[in-house]
Computed example of a mutant assay.
Amino acid sequence: MKLAFYGSSLLSSYWNGAATYYRGLLRDLAPRGYDITFYEPDAFDRQQHRDIDPPDWAKVVVYPATPDALRGVVAEAARADVVVKASGVGVFDTELLEGVTAAARPDAIRIFWDVDAPATLAEIAGSPDHVLRRCMPQLDFVLTYGGGPPVIAAYEGFGARRCIPIYNALDPSTHHPVPAEERFAADLAFLGNRLPDREARVEQFFLQPAALLPDRRFLIGGNGWDSKAMPPNVRHLGHVYTREHNAFNTSPLAVLNIARDSMATTGFSPATRVFEAAGAGACLITDAWVGLELFLKEGEEVLVARDGQDVAEHVRNLTPERARAIGEAARRRILAEHTYHLRGAEVDALLRAEAARKAQRSAA
């Protein structure tokens, strides 16, 4: 099947946390019989910060962020059997969704793939003329990369025919244990871009523990933190390329995950970083959120913090031996239950069942 995927970027993770999610899923779908074209705009300096070259498992079309170029890539939706518009492309999001939904053939499978469902649902609730309200009747699926029962219920309440979470996962060919590197050495490391709905939680779960443990080393990676006031024992790296994530995860004593406000509130929304860290065998400390037990077991495969004081206590009490044991247990669990090979099989089954249903309906 020909699959046209309109997303933020496959080639760059710069201000684009969904990149490894796209890569993991689409890399797995390609050998299952999907001819994939990924359409991404030349925007936000992402093309100047590529993590990967165009892969052999997908054709990548980088188009100028102009109305003329938009019309050209939208028209190509008519050639696809499966048309996917992802959330958060960043330019022409409304026009892309309306355009590719209208351009797709009647027998094509139309999907909105939401990589930030809690935020999108808040937008829909506050906007009676939201583009998704207009396009929902034409969509066969809403797929999300998290959110569990609360997100499913909310999307179905807005008229989605089917809303199915396809959770983040691990691609063990790209995220795995590597030797530690001194440049990433720390007692606790956090990787995430500075965003309005994350900053207060970073202050609580990362900067407060750093202030409480002045004799320990803290490391923060990601865009936007250069102007943020931090304790003197915090070192800031700036953007960390995907190819550096393994060493970033294996070098510190522990790695911290901090959910954004909306995802922490909704629950069932493990970030990509959770699986990357576990895949590298890192000892992960995460803020608490509903649904965590579906992915990792508290105390054995992950350490959970309810506030900054908890984070500080975990770091203070953690030994290299216990950190290693937790990281190894997490890696075993994720490899057994949460890989993109398993997620790809789930998506493949959905698409083939829907294609068969459409074919049967057309023949009737």
Rank of each mutant, 00 (worst) to 15 (best):
M1Y: 02
Y6G: 06
S8V: 01
S9L: 07
W15C: 09
W15H: 14
G17A: 01
G17L: 01
T20V: 03
T20E: 00
L29E: 00
P31N: 08
G33D: 03
Y34N: 00
Y34W: 01
T37G: 01
F38W: 07
Y39E: 11
P41N: 13
P41F: 12
D42W: 09
A43P: 03
Q47M: 15
H49D: 08
I52V: 15
P54C: 11
P54D: 11
P55Y: 14
D56P: 05
K59E: 15
K59P: 03
V61S: 04
V62M: 12
T66I: 12
T66Y: 12
T66H: 11
L70W: 13
L70R: 14
A75I: 06
A80K: 00
V82M: 00
V82H: 00
V82R: 00
V84P: 00
V89W: 10
F92N: 05
F92D: 07
F92E: 05
T94R: 15
L96I: 15
L96T: 09
L97W: 06
V100H: 06
T101N: 14
A104T: 02
F112R: 01
T120Q: 01
L121R: 02
S127W: 02
P128F: 05
V131K: 06
L132S: 00
L132K: 03
P137E: 14
V142Q: 08
L143K: 05
T144R: 06
G146T: 05
P149H: 11
P150Q: 12
I152S: 13
E156D: 04
G159W: 07
G159R: 05
G159F: 07
A160N: 12
D171G: 07
T174E: 14
T174C: 11
H175T: 03
A180V: 12
E182H: 13
R183V: 11
R183E: 15
A189C: 13
A189W: 11
G192L: 02
G192S: 03
L195Y: 12
L195H: 10
P196K: 03
V202D: 03
E203W: 10
F205K: 04
L212S: 07
L213S: 13
D215Q: 13
F218N: 08
G222W: 01
G222D: 03
W225D: 09
A229W: 02
H236A: 14
T242I: 06
E244A: 09
H245W: 10
H245E: 05
N246D: 01
A247G: 04
N249D: 13
L253C: 10
N257P: 01
R260K: 15
D261P: 00
S262K: 14
M263S: 14
T266A: 11
G267F: 09
A271Q: 04
E276M: 02
A277G: 08
I285C: 04
V290S: 11
G291Q: 09
E301Q: 03
A305C: 12
G308Y: 02
A312L: 12
E313H: 12
H314L: 12
V315Q: 08
V315W: 04
N317G: 14
P320G: 10
G327N: 02
A329N: 13
R332G: 04
I334R: 05
L335M: 10
T339C: 07
R352I: 08
A355R: 15
A355F: 10
A356H: 11
Q360L: 14
